[in-house]
Design a protein around this nucleic acid. Structure first.
Lengths: 138, 138
DNA sequence: TTACATGCAAACTGTTTGCAAATAT
DNA sequence: ATATTTGCAAACAGTTTGCATGTAA
C-alpha cells in the first residue's frame, strides 16, 4: 500500500482497467524501473521468477490492453515474437542480433533528411527505425 | 526458351539452385517486372492465378532459399506475415495502413543524422526505416 | 542413377479465444 | 450483486518439416 502501488492503481484506473493483482504486478515490473522492452514470454518468465502467479494468456491480454490504453507501444520488428516498449514517445531502436534484444536510441538529435513527398492523401502515422547491429568483425 | 528464361536459369544456377519449373515460374513473377513486395501467401495466389501449379510449402521454401541466396530480402515489419522484397539494396519503405502494403522510398537523398555512438564492439548490419502512412484526415 | 526438389499433411510456434471459476466494485 | 478478469485448454494463423514421389543432372 505504498506510494508506488497507489500510483499504479491510479494509472490503471485512468486507463479504464481494473487494478487486479495480476495487472498491478505486471505494471510494477513494466513501469517500475526505467524503459523496458519485453515480449509476452519474457514478461511471463520475469513474473514467474518474481513468484507472481499469472498465466501466459493473461500476460498476452494485459500487454494488449496496456497497448490499447497507450501505456505501451508495439515495436515494428521482423523477429518471430512481438516486442512491447514502455517508452511510448517517438524514438528508435538498436536491435542487437547477438542477444536478440532491443535498445533505445537516444533520439535528441536524430533526424531523417531527404524524404520524398508523401503519396497524395496520406500523412505520416509514425516512423520506425531499427538499426541492426552485429558484433564488429575485429 | 527465350532470353529472359535463360537469364533466370542462369540466375538460379549462380545461386546454387536447380532451375526447376516451380522455381523458374516464381522467379519470373518476382524478377520479371520491377521491384516487388510479396508475402508467401500473395505470391502463391499470384502463381495460382497465372495457372502455375505450385504448393504453398514450396513457395515458402523457395522464398527462404532466394533470401539465403541474396536474391530477396526480408522486410522488418511488425505485421502478422513476413514480407519479401526483390530490391535487395539498402532502401526504405512506406507502409500503407489502408491497403496493408509496402512501397519503396526513393532513397537517393535520404539520410539519417545524429546517430549516437554505437555500443562498443558492434557495427551496423543494416538500417530499416518504415514510415507508416495513414489516410490524411482531410 | 542419384542427389535434390516437390507436395501433402502433420507438426510447430506465437498468439487469441470460449467458458467456467474467481475477483473487483 | 453484477460486471469484469482470470486461467486453462482448445483454437488459430503463419510457417516449417518428414517422408514418399517426382525430377534435374
Amino acid at each position: 500500500m505504498n506510494l508506488q502501488h497507489t500510483a499504479l492503481v491510479e494509472r490503471l484506473r485512468l486507463a479504464g482497467l481494473r487494478p487486479t493483482r495480476q495487472r498491478l504486478c505486471l505494471a510494477a515490473i513494466l513501469f517500475g524501473a526505467g524503459d523496458r522492452h519485453v515480449s509476452a514470454e519474457s514478461l511471463h518468465q520475469e513474473a514467474l521468477a518474481a513468484r507472481i502467479d499469472v498465466s501466459l494468456a493473461t500476460v498476452y491480454n494485459t500487454l494488449n490492453q496496456f497497448k490499447a490504453a497507450g501505456l505501451l507501444r508495439e515495436v515494428a520488428f521482423e523477429g518471430d515474437r512481438t516486442f512491447f516498449d514502455t517508452n511510448t514517445s517517438n524514438h528508435f531502436h538498436y536491435y542487437i542480433e547477438e542477444t536478440n534484444s532491443l535498445v533505445d536510441i537516444g533520439t535528441e538529435n536524430l533526424e531523417v533528411l531527404g524524404l520524398p513527398q508523401l503519396p497524395p492523401g496520406t500523412e505520416i502515422d509514425r516512423v520506425d527505425i531499427i538499426i541492426r547491429l552485429r558484433k564488429s568483425s575485429r
